[in-house]
């Protein structure tokens, strides 16, 4: 059988790859995909904890996370379309009006 810590370790590695993507990439769409990757890695750890402890609440929470991710990606992609329409770029280094 597979130890629970292997799932949590895999989840941590995928989450970190997502964090590195969000912090270092410049294409707004790929940054969005990195956020999806982070949400997915958290879902994996929730399902693992749920299966090893026998509590269905983890799977219900994953269901809600997927619903929220769908809403979030729809709104986020609409924001990217509006950004591209106004600035003709999705490079976040050029979108720096609010930058300190």
């Amino acid at each position: 059988m597979i130890p629970l810590s292997y799932y949590i370790g895999l989840s941590a590695i995928l989450f970190t790859i997502g964090v590195v993507g969000v912090l270092t990439l410049r294409n707004a769409i790929v940054i969005f995909m990195s956020i999806e990757l982070m949400l997915n890695s958290v879902n994996l750890s929730l399902i693992a904890f749920s299966a090893y402890s026998g509590n269905p609440a983890g799977q219900i929470l994953v269901f809600f996370v997927i619903a929220v991710a769908a809403a979030e990606s729809a709104v986020g992609l609409a924001i990217i379309i509006a950004l591209f329409r106004n600035r003709l770029t999705v490079n976040i280094d050029e979108v720096n009006v609010l930058k300190w």
């Binding site: 597979i2 799932y7 994996l44 399902i47 693992a48 749920s50 299966a51 799977q59 269901f63 997927i66």
Partner: peptide
């Protein structure tokens, strides 16, 4: 991996 954890619906 979810199937490994018996979470078919998810």
């Amino acid at each position: 991996l979810y199937l490994f954890l018996r979470a078919q619906f998810i």
